[in-house]
Design a protein around this nucleic acid. Structure first.
Lengths: 335, 335
DNA sequence: CTGAAAGCGCTTACAG
DNA sequence: CTGAAAGCGCTTACAG
C-alpha cells in the first residue's frame, strides 16, 4: 500500500542503499544525487517505515519517561519540557507510570514494559531504590535522573535544601520566629527532595536558634486538600506558628483556604510561603520559591540524547546539572 | 545481544511460528506446548522485539493523541484518562502538539509526523478544519474526536450547550438577572465548544427575557490571568453584571481574584460560576459545571481501540458518545 | 561516491 | 496443532 524505499530507488535510478543514505543525510553521497533523491522522495510523498528502520538499525527510536504518577502541575510541566527538548531529535516519547510505592502500583514493572523499546529513559522524581526496583538500571540504556541526584548517574535537579533555606530565611527576615512546616508525606520519607527541604528548614531554625518542635510539622500529601487540613492542625496549636513553609504551592493554596475560613489574614497574622512557582501563586499572592520545572524537562532531554549518542562515541562524564531556584516575595509573607 | 524468538524455539524444541503463536495467545496451540513455551520464555527472560513484530505484522503498535498544546488541567486529565484506558491494550501512546492556530504552530504537520507510526489517532479539542488541515483524515487510520462532534466521525464529548444552560439557569434560579460571560477566545471562534457554551448562555437569557448586551461578554484566554482581566473589565461596567458565567474554572479563579481585590464578595454582590470541575473549585468555593475529563480520555481510548480492531472485523457504527456534566452549587453563587 | 547482498527478528499464509 | 519458508522494509558492512 505505502511506498517503500525501493520505489524511490527505482524512480531515482539508484540503489536502496543510496536512498537510505541520502534521506538520512549521511556524508558520503554526491550532492546532486542526494538532491535528486530528496526531490523524488517528496514528489512521491514517501515516508520511511519506522519499524523497518528500527529493526534494521537496532535503535528503538524512542525514549521513556518513567514517573510515579500522571497528573498535577509538576508532572505536566516536566512533560512539556521534555517534549520541547526532544523536538530536534526524531524520537518518540513513551510514558510509564509506576504508581506510588505503597499505594497502587503498576501491574508490570517499568523494566518489563519498556525494555527493547527505548534507547534511554528519564526517571522523574523517583527515589533511587525505586528506580532500581523498577529495573531501570538493568535496561542497558542510558538513564537520566530528574529531580534527584545519585553518584554515578547523570541527573538534573534543583537545590532543594538551598531553596528551602531561602524560603525560611525569608520568613525569618520578615520577623517571624515560630515557623511551621507543611511537608508532603509524613517525614522522614524515601523521597529525597522532601528530606532535603526539611534539612534546609531545620538549618535556618538552628542557625537562628528558633523553635524546632516536631509539632510544628504536618504532612499535606502534596495536594490542596491535604494542605488545608495540615494548616487547620497547625492553626489549632497553642502557641500557634506565626509563619509556615509549605513544600508545595498547591498545599499552600489549601493552607490559604484554611486561613481564610478562620479569618486569619495571610501575611499579617500568619505568614505562608510555598515552593514551586505554580502559575496561580501570583494570582493568590502567595510567596514562593520557584523552580524551573519545564527547564528540568528540557535539560533532561538533552542530557539523555547526548548520552544515547555518546554510547557509540567518546565516553561522557557523569553530568549532574543543578538548576537555580528563585524566591518571590508576595503578600502572603507580608510583602 | 538480546534473545530472539529462535532461542526460545530452540530451547522448547518447536518452530518459531509456534513460539510466536503461543506467546501471543493465539487459538490453535496445544495447551501443553503453550505452557512449556511460556515457561521457557520466562526462564530465559525473553521479550519480543517490538520493531520486528511491527514490521512483520504491519501494525504500528501505537496510537497518537494530537492536541493543540501541552499543559493545563484539561490536557493532563485527558492524557491520564487515555493512559488508563489504554492499559489493557499493548500500545504505545504518542503525542503530537500542533500548536494553536494563529499562535505558534508546530513546524511539521501532524500527518507528516505520525504517519506510518500509528494505528489510530485521537484528536483532542480541535476544530474539524484543523483536524483536516493537519492531514489527520488522510492517514488511513481510524480517528476519534475528543471534545468535538462531527458527522461521520466517531467522537466523545460533553453537551457543552446543555452544560452552559445548567450553569446559567442556576444563576437565574438564584435570582441574578444581569449575567455576564467570560469566554475563552474572543467570540465567535473556530472552537466549537465555546460557541456551544455561548449558545447555551444565550438560550437561557432569551428564555427569561434577560439582557444580552455584547458588552457583558469578555474573553479570558482560558487562563487565570485572562480571567482576572476579563472580570476587571466586567466589574467596571455600569450597570455592572450581578453574576458571571466563566467558561472555565481557571478563568473563574482569576475572576475571584479580581473580585477580592476590589472587595466584591463572591456570591453576595456578584455571583460567579465556572465550568470544568477543576480540583480547586471546591477549595475556592467556586460553583461549577463539572465535566468528566478523565472519562473522556478513557472512552476515547476504547472507541479508538475498538475501531482499530474493527477495521479487520465487521464495520462499526459511527459512535458518538456524549458524557453528562454535573452542576455543583457553592458559595460563589450564594449557596 | 555507489551497489549487491545479507540480515535485523518477527508474522503469516500455506501445507500438512 | 505445527513447521518451512517467504517476506515485512529498512540499514550496514563489504567491495569496488
Amino acid at each position: 500500500v505505502a511506498l517503500t524505499i525501493r520505489d524511490v530507488a527505482r524512480a531515482a535510478g539508484v540503489s536502496t542503499a543510496t536512498v537510505s543514505r541520502a534521506l538520512r543525510g549521511l556524508e558520503n553521497v554526491d550532492p546532486d544525487t542526494r538532491a535528486r533523491i530528496v526531490r523524488i522522495a517528496e514528489e512521491l510523498r514517501f515516508s520511511i517505515s519506522p519499524s523497518a528502520s528500527r529493526l534494521a538499525s537496532g535503535r528503538a527510536g524512542s525514549i521513556a519517561i518513567v514517573t510515579p504518577f500522571i497528573g498535577g502541575w509538576y508532572f505536566t510541566e516536566v512533560f512539556a519540557g521534555l517534549e520541547s527538548g526532544l523536538q530536534p531529535y526524531d524520537v518518540d516519547l513513551l510514558l510509564h507510570a509506576t504508581g506510588m510505592p505503597g499505594v497502587t502500583a503498576h501491574p508490570v514493572r517499568a523494566h518489563e514494559r519498556i525494555r527493547r523499546r527505548v534507547d534511554g529513559v528519564v526517571v522523574m522524581g523517583m527515589p533511587l531504590e525505586m528506580t532500581e526496583s523498577e529495573g531501570l538500571f538493568d535496561l542497558d540504556v542510558p538513564v537520566v535522573l530528574l529531580g534527584v541526584q545519585a553518584p554515578g548517574v547523570p541527573s538534573v535537579c534543583i537545590d532543594d535544601r538551598g531553596g528551602a533555606v531561602d524560603a525560611v530565611e525569608h520568613l525569618v527576615d520578615r520577623g517571624f520566629e515560630r515557623i511551621g512546616l507543611i511537608s508532603g508525606r509524613p517525614l522522614p520519607t524515601m523521597f529525597v527532595p522532601e528530606n532535603d527541604r526539611l534539612d534546609g528548614y531545620l538549618d535556618v531554625l538552628h542557625k537562628h536558634g528558633l523553635p524546632t518542635d516536631e509539632a510544628l510539622r504536618e504532612p499535606g500529601e502534596f495536594d490542596v486538600r491535604g494542605g488545608e487540613l495540615a494548616m487547620d492542625r497547625l492553626l489549632s496549636l497553642r502557641p500557634r506558628p506565626t509563619a509556615v513553609f509549605s513544600m508545595s504551592d498547591e498545599m499552600a493554596y489549601g493552607a490559604l483556604r484554611a486561613m481564610n475560613r478562620r479569618g486569619v489574614v495571610p501575611g499579617r497574622e500568619v505568614a505562608i510561603i510555598g515552593f514551586d512557582g505554580h502559575d496561580l501563586a501570583d494570582t493568590f499572592d502567595l510567596s514562593t520559591v520557584a523552580q524551573p520545572v519545564r527547564e528540568l524537562g528540557r535539560v533532561a532531554a538533552n542530557l539523555l540524547m547526548e548520552r544515547i549518542a555518546g554510547v557509540s562515541a567518546s565516553p561522557l562524564g557523569t553530568d549532574s546539572v543543578v538548576l537555580a531556584t528563585q524566591l518571590y516575595a508576595r503578600r502572603s509573607t507580608g510583602c
